[in-house]
Amino acid sequence: MDNPKRSNEALLRPYSHKNTGWRLFLSTIIARAYPRIIGQQREVSWLVFDLIMPMLAVIAYVFVYRALNAPEEYIGFVVMGGAMTAFWMNILWSMSSQLYWEKEQGNLALYIMAPNSMMAILLGMALGGMLATALRALAVTLLGIFMFGVTYTVSSYLQLFLVFMLAMIALYGMGMMMASAFLLFGREAWHMANLAQEPIFLASGFYFPIKSLPFWVAAGASIIPLTLGMDAMRQLIFPTGFEYGFMTVQTEILILAVLSVVFVFTAKVLLAYVERIAVREGRITESRR
């Protein structure tokens, strides 16, 4: 039995601290990022699988190029594409499909009811996902170096940093936007995520230079931030990378900056729409749909 006197004391005690405004926004981001950065690392088998799965495809494609006696740059292209695969998979399964899964497990209604901003939750998911996936991408890159002897020669660290950061902002902005869109797809969300794997690996040139595709196909695929991000990075980290570039690095940086703004803004608009439907109709949070 609880001590009634102590229970009353607990009820009468005022809140020690209650964040509001930007403090609440910031603490929500940190709180949602926490399970992505710390929690996910606790399941060691996931970590192992997360590293092994992209490596299997990388190894297979490397041996295809070896069987074809391809120039060594292509081995590097495949390893880099394999590393970036981790980000795309993270976008599909841990960003785009996330709100749908939260709905299935009954958490989405709690998210919407809570006094925090949904945008902060999505930003937290993105930040956590980005950092956790960066570790995996780094591991794939290192494994590529040790297993296949891939060498990198960076021509401009500043541009490389800028390209990577802009590609990540645009990509995770796209993920935030897709999270709301996938929620509206209902039970088709899982299949949509599944469908967005091989076609995107193909169109975005994960395993070959995007320049090899017809111009308009490559231009269309540039809506996926990783397409231009990878193209620019290949130009910046391989000595002969410029020969395989689709556009100049400067142009790609500019387009990535525009994509970043467009995707983050659209994500905000779509999220507001989803919240409106959820509150007005109670339909979005219904887990049987």
């Binding site: 295809v64 599944n194 076609p199 193909l202 395993y207 090899s212």
Partner: peptide, 20 residues
């Protein structure tokens, strides 16, 4: 869905082969 997924997987290999 049934058409796009397998064709894309095969097309990656075809393009890799075609380039080299």
């Amino acid at each position: 869905y049934s058409i796009v997924k397998p064709i894309s997987g095969a097309a990656i290999l075809v393009i890799m082969y075609g380039i080299i």
